[in-house]
Amino acid sequence: MFDLIPFEHRNAGLFDFFNHFDDDFFNSTQNSFAPCRTDIRDEGNQYVLEAELPGFSKEEINVNVENDCMTLTAQHKEDSEQKDNAGNYIRRERRMNSLSRSFDISGINTEKITASFENGVLTMHMPKNEETKPLPKQITIQ
């Protein structure tokens, strides 16, 4: 059974109040960052994985399967520049976002995995392998 564990434990001491005052504003390292928020549902004969990838386009996302491991990677590059009339830079910024996430997909029929990307959410339907039941066998007595 899973226990509910908070992301961060804070003591409610009198002098502890201002220690965390600027955490949200400065994006403190105490706040945990998930590469992409992922929900996985068991729908009986398949799993449905939904990964939130805001800011990425479909062309920037790759899903690779090797053995029993599925790896989701996404990479986004953005360049913006402003020049004056003489062609000198007034401002030039470069930004790159990338993420990688791996999943154990043992028990999944990898040949039938389907994926779609809409409104920043990658949805993957991953059918389970069919259980092979041993056939009844008659044993002859000698």
Rank of each mutant, 00 (worst) to 15 (best):
M1V: 10
D3E: 02
D3K: 00
L4G: 02
I5H: 08
P6E: 02
P6K: 03
F7T: 02
F7E: 02
E8A: 00
H9S: 04
R10E: 01
R10F: 04
N11E: 11
A12R: 02
G13P: 13
L14I: 00
F15Y: 04
D16Q: 07
D16A: 10
F17E: 03
N19Q: 03
H20V: 06
D23R: 02
F26I: 08
F26L: 05
N27K: 04
N27A: 05
T29L: 11
Q30V: 12
A34F: 07
P35A: 00
R37G: 01
R37W: 05
T38R: 08
T38V: 09
T38Q: 06
D39P: 01
R41H: 13
N45Y: 07
N45G: 14
Q46G: 09
Y47L: 14
L49H: 04
P54G: 02
G55Q: 09
S57P: 03
S57T: 15
V63M: 11
V63P: 08
N64R: 07
N67V: 04
N67C: 03
C69T: 14
M70W: 06
A74W: 06
A74E: 09
A74M: 09
K77A: 09
E78R: 09
D84N: 15
D84G: 14
N85Q: 15
N85H: 15
N85M: 15
A86Q: 13
Y89D: 13
E93S: 14
N97R: 07
S98K: 14
S100W: 10
F103H: 07
F103Q: 06
F103Y: 13
S106Q: 11
S106Y: 11
G107N: 02
G107W: 04
I108Q: 11
T110C: 07
E111Y: 15
I113V: 10
S116D: 15
G120H: 02
G120M: 00
V121R: 06
V121A: 05
T123C: 12
M124R: 04
H125E: 06
M126L: 09
K128D: 10
E131W: 04
T132V: 05
T132C: 01
K137G: 00
I141E: 01
I141S: 03
